[in-house]
Computed example of a mutant assay.
Amino acid sequence: MASNEKTEPKEQEPVENKQQETPAKKSPVKKISLIVLIITVLIFIINVLSDRHTPHTDQARVKGLVLPVAPMVSGYIIQTNVSQHSRVKAGDTLFIIDPTSYEIAVKVAESNLEKAIQSIDAGESTLKSAQARLSRAKVKLERSTKNWERTQRVLAENEGALSEADIDRSEASYLEAIESVKSSQADLERQTEALGPLNENNPTIKAALNNLENAQINLGYTAVIAPSDGIVESFNIEDGYFAAAGHSLMSLVSNNDMWIQANLKENNLSKVEPGDRVELIFDIEPGKVFEGKLTSISYGVSVDNTNPNGLPKVSSAQGWLRDPQRFPVMIELEDKEIISKLRQGSQAEIVVYTGKKPLLNMIARLRIRIMSKLSYVR
């Protein structure tokens, strides 16, 4: 009996060992869960800090100027020098409108200017005649004045020396001479005022010159030239097409000035400032990262279709959670070679470096370089 009692504890030892080993097997699961939780929290914190210090977005597009080309005068097109997607330089002639009627208008304006000059010449002759009449009237007045003064002296010395008729004739001649001078002076002033200046400041001459200049300008407008370097788009005309003044016939995509518009979330903008360094990737150049500089930040966006102020409109994703409002930022490319390859509307992805944050900057640099490699397959 004693021996049996001793063996019973030996049989219970494995059970106790199993109970002691069970917690040891569960401990790795807890450690892994804790590690995953810590990593998740770290990723969340890094993501929040990245949104502030190294914001990035794939809502970025290439922007540029699109110039509508419209003639200043109307007429039938007699010559076209470009076609769809033609590359042109500033000053190149795009097409020519029939200049016949405008050449005639120039000749008519030149004829009217000659008539105006002749009219001024004729008026100048008339003016000289009026001046001559005034001079004669003044000479007559001078003689009549002396005669009247002589008559007055004779009468003062001897009242009966002259007859009444002689006195009346002398006085009448003097008064008539005064009136003649006044009349000639008024006639000269009237003709001088009507004729105006005898140079290019003459109203008749100025009107004729203005008409001639306007006719010459309209004649020059018959040759429609490119306002800047660019590429022809929306071109659908040919010889014989009637071009209406002010009606756009084509668009010129300017390649002189291109920039990137990126739509950043409102909570990305707290640290962003003009002058911040930017890295960009384009689908047209997969695997490459380009440098840029943030130049400006929009101060407002349109939130409905009735905004009369012309503010930029940014679309937001609709989902279960409210998407933060986005605001456009403008980015200038520092690599000028890529500009020649880009097309307006091309997509881009950007990251903005707002300061010296080594860890966050390294993560952002690594991320955008990975995305640039993925451009090969997306």
Rank of each mutant, 00 (worst) to 15 (best):
A186V: 15
A122D: 12
G287I: 02
E193W: 10
L366A: 12
P203I: 01
P274S: 00
A130N: 13
L249N: 05
N4C: 04
T126W: 09
D58I: 13
I225M: 10
Q344M: 02
P14K: 06
T7L: 10
L269A: 03
H56K: 13
A244G: 07
G355H: 07
V377E: 05
K30T: 13
S302N: 07
T7H: 08
G319V: 12
N307G: 07
G64F: 00
K146R: 13
N202Y: 02
P23K: 04
S119W: 08
S372G: 07
R343K: 15
S74Y: 09
G292F: 08
E159T: 13
V88Y: 02
Y221A: 08
V29Q: 09
R153C: 03
I368F: 04
N214T: 15
N214S: 14
W259S: 00
S270I: 06
E164T: 14
I331G: 05
V314Q: 01
S50R: 13
L342C: 04
E157L: 13
A24H: 06
E334R: 11
D121H: 15
S270R: 07
E11L: 12
S3T: 15
D187Y: 08
K140D: 08
L175Q: 14
K128C: 03
G123N: 01
S316K: 11
E279P: 02
K31S: 09
F95N: 10
Y221K: 12
A109H: 03
I368D: 03
T93W: 05
A223K: 13
P203Q: 02
N307P: 01
M1C: 04
L374V: 10
E332A: 14
G319T: 14
N147P: 00
A364S: 02
A194P: 05
K63L: 08
T40L: 14
P324H: 06
P324W: 08
I97S: 06
S248R: 10
I39G: 01
K26F: 09
E13W: 11
L209N: 09
R136F: 10
Q185D: 08
F242M: 11
T40V: 14
E159Y: 09
S270L: 09
V106T: 15
N309Y: 15
P312R: 04
E213L: 11
R326A: 06
Q216L: 10
Q131T: 08
